[in-house]
């Protein structure tokens, strides 16, 4: 028996050595361990053995079966690994060739900037309100303390539809409408399109975008205005960017200020972008003129407030180094495709 098992093992070893496919291996397994296989034949032949020999022979055969199974499995694992390796090699691609790109898309650069600005203020509890672009003179001018024949209403600056209707020259009429319909506390921002009769050139457009903010509450001061704008500056431009207030004049605010931000390009050291001053003019603001509050039905003795206005085009041009405003309105995908 021992010899017979040794013969089978020898055969197995010989055949395993030349076996080079999973099919051949399977055939070998059948030949040795299958129902009609050689080891099974030995098992069948056990009947001829004496009862004393049988357990010994049975154990030998079982041990051999385990051993042969392990040998076959080992070979199978090896062959599988080889086959996979070959397949992987076959399937190798040039990973450096161009990818299949999904189409890219993006919102307009001014929407990118506007979204950031809006997020900054909504995070501080401001609510977005909107209003008509073709607006009553009453809201656009009268309630903003710009009476008839004020130089700011010059036909050169304002597009008129008729004596009472204009294309809004700022988003301030939305503030007026808000004050007339709501009770303080008011914290709103009004983004939108505005119109001025300027010929189109590299830095002017008859259509542009603004975001104005308005806060009305008890004891609102210019320090709150500065704090709000400082928070805005840091959020939009990063740490260390702060504001400089300069006295100015707007009919709807008193006191009024022109606000410069630390030049982002040089962090205030002075460079070409800021013309050496370290500051970039970004917005106008002030405390809401008591006359405006009164006209809009808010008691200036009880409430005070501030307002500010930001030009979206200007920030967009500064941020992305856009040399000519016309690019923003041309819609060429070679330009738009650069934004993300």
């Amino acid at each position: 028996m021992k010899e017979k098992i040794a013969q089978i093992e020898e055969l197995l070893v010989t055949e395993l050595a030349v076996c080079d496919s999973l099919q051949a291996l399977d055939a070998l397994r059948v030949k040795v361990l299958g129902k009609k296989g050689e080891l099974t034949a030995l098992l069948r032949g056990m009947g001829q053995l004496s009862p004393e020999e049988r357990p010994v022979a049975g154990q030998m055969i079982n041990e051999a079966r385990e051993k042969f199974t392990a040998m076959l499995e080992e070979k199978q694992a090896l062959l599988k690994a080889q086959a996979q390796e070959a397949a992987l090699k076959r399937e190798t691609i040039d990973v450096t060739q161009p990818a299949a790109m999904p189409k890219a898309g993006c919102v307009h650069p001014m929407t990118l900037v506007l979204n950031e600005v809006v997020d900054c203020f909504t995070g501080m509890g401001f609510e977005v309100v909107e209003g008509p672009e073709v607006e009553l003179d009453h809201y656009n001018f009268e309630l903003m303390n710009i009476p008839k024949n004020h130089p700011a209403r010059d036909a050169q600056d304002t597009f008129y539809v008729d004596d009472n209707i204009v294309l809004r020259t700022h988003t301030s009429p939305v503030q007026a409408r808000t004050m007339l319909t709501r009770k303080p506390p008011i914290r709103v921002i009004c983004p939108g399109r505005v119109y001025r009769a300027d010929e189109m050139d590299a830095t002017h457009s008859p259509v542009f975008h603004q975001l104005e903010g308005l806060v009305i509450d008890k004891d609102v001061t210019m320090a709150d205005l500065r704090g709000t704008l400082n928070a805005f500056a840091e959020r939009l431009y990063g740490k260390g960017i702060t504001t400089r207030f300069r006295p100015s004049f707007f009919p709807f605010t008193e006191p009024s200020a022109e606000v410069d931000l630390t030049c982002v390009a040089c962090h205030g050291k002075g460079c070409r972008v800021c013309k050496g001053t370290g500051w970039i003019e970004v917005l106008g603001c002030g405390m809401v003129n008591p006359h405006v509050l009164e006209m809009c039905g808010i008691d200036p003795k009880e409430y005070s407030g501030f307002a500010f206005g930001i030009g979206i085009e200007r920030i967009t041009m500064q941020r992305y180094g856009i040399p000519d405003l016309r690019l923003l309105f041309e819609g060429d995908v070679r330009f738009l495709g650069q934004f993300r």
Binding site: G125, R187, D217, A223, A231
Partner: peptide
């Protein structure tokens, strides 16, 4: 200074 007073949802 930062805004004080009643908060608004925004």
């Amino acid at each position: 200074t930062l805004l004080r007073g009643e908060t608004t949802p925004g």
